[in-house]
Amino acid sequence: MTLFSKAVERIDAQSATIGAMFGGDRRVFGSRTRDPRREAAILEAERFVYDIRYGRRPLTHFAEAMSTSDFPSLFADSLDRQLYGSYTATIPTWKNYARAAVVNDFRPVKRFATSGVRGLLSKVGELAEHERRSMTETPYEYEVDKYEAGFALSWEAMINDDLNAFMRLPQDLAESAIDSEEYFVTTLFCDASGPHATHYTGGNDNLLTGNPVLSRDALQAAITKLMKRRDANGNPITVKSVRLVVGTGLALTAQEILDTTEYRTVDANGNVRVISGNGVAANLGVDVNYWIDSVATTANADTSWWVFADPNGARPAMEFGRLRGYEAPALFEKIPDTRRVGGGEEPWSFDTEAAEKKIKHVFGGAFVDTKMTVASKGTGN
């Protein structure tokens, strides 16, 4: 052990070769003169390296004896490698405030909103003519488009993939389809400045006056505006539930409003009134849309907020359509054209030795009824 300890010290100091450490270049096996001490040292060194290789020695022994600089080829790559998982796709929220539909083909589809006949009955005198009403219609039109993405892997890359890094790629394509749907619907109601300027206007009466910041009072005003909606004939539009949609900048604020269990008000005379609950949580849900931060490129991304009526009511604020027969994203792979001599197909291209996969998704949509939503830029002006 004393001899071996000295040998380890000399290895650390890089001051000797293997032959010099263990007594020169004399033959050990088959020689007439045997050196038991030298043979024992060699066997001990072999046992030490064997134990290190199969994890039978503590790592501290290895660190004290040898460093990675002693073996530049062996430790050129890390012995401890780990593959991190990819980022998780955003949780889709659009189904909570946009109606899902199915279209038959790529031709434009039309949706019609009718009104004009519904209304209060008029009192009619004896032998008098009754009121004759006419129906009006408002058309909405959109078409679906095809969206694709894919990848190709070389044969060498797959052989070298000891961490199975490429096994995740088809799942990444599937999650790309989820992100694409959420992003598309976000662009229907949001633009660079927040609420989409085409749909949220003073003329449509769906942009809150003063663009108030998100608060309980402002949210109450937005919900009240939705509840007071009237059609062209002045008939009330029933809104049974609403969804509050915000970006990540207002996620905590929205949740705090929803989770409030007590609300206090003070009147002009200083009297305090305690209200159990927050007064707005009934039939209200909160959706955090992560793509708002990407679509709204100004500071309004952190302040804008939207309120939508239940999309399953009479009319939705938006409609998102998928192609019939392709409602779900479809994953494809290129048919291999390589076969071994003697039989057996290989999943590679004969010319390039690459394996290819792609995903295809067909969807589209449109903004339908501006009465079914209210928004604010949250700028306070």
Rank of each mutant, 00 (worst) to 15 (best):
T90F: 02
A251R: 01
M167N: 07
N312Q: 13
A101E: 03
T198S: 15
K110A: 05
E181K: 06
D25N: 13
F62I: 10
F367R: 13
I18E: 04
D369P: 15
R229C: 03
I275D: 01
A7K: 05
F62L: 13
A89I: 04
I292P: 06
A222E: 12
G119L: 03
G279R: 03
W305Y: 07
N269I: 11
R26V: 14
M1V: 11
V368H: 10
T298C: 04
E262M: 09
K360A: 12
A16C: 01
L252S: 13
V102N: 06
L284H: 02
I42E: 15
A251M: 06
V362F: 09
G202Q: 14
L208A: 12
W155K: 15
N271S: 09
A98T: 07
A174L: 10
A63R: 15
E148A: 14
A355K: 03
L250Q: 09
S15F: 05
R243P: 06
S276H: 10
S180G: 07
A328N: 14
L188H: 09
N381Y: 14
S180C: 08
S15K: 01
S176Y: 04
L169H: 02
T261Q: 10
R322H: 08
A309H: 03
V246H: 10
C190W: 11
V49D: 04
A197K: 13
L173D: 08
R34N: 09
T238R: 03
Y87E: 04
R107T: 02
R230P: 05
E143Q: 13
D337Q: 07
D267L: 01
E9I: 10
G55V: 10
T136W: 00
F332H: 06
G55Y: 08
R118M: 06
A254D: 03
Y147M: 13
M1S: 14
V286T: 07
N164F: 10
L258V: 00
Y147Q: 15
E256D: 05
I52H: 02
I257T: 08
E126M: 10
Y147L: 14
D231T: 02
D145E: 10
D259M: 02
S5C: 09
Y200C: 08
I257M: 01
G203N: 09
N233M: 12
E333F: 12
T352Y: 08
N211V: 08
R99C: 03
N235C: 09
T136M: 11
D310V: 00
E137K: 11
L121I: 12
Q14H: 04
L331F: 13
I223R: 11
T224D: 15
S115L: 00
A301R: 09
E345S: 04
D191E: 14
L208P: 05
L83C: 03
G234V: 03
H130Y: 12
F189C: 11
L120T: 07
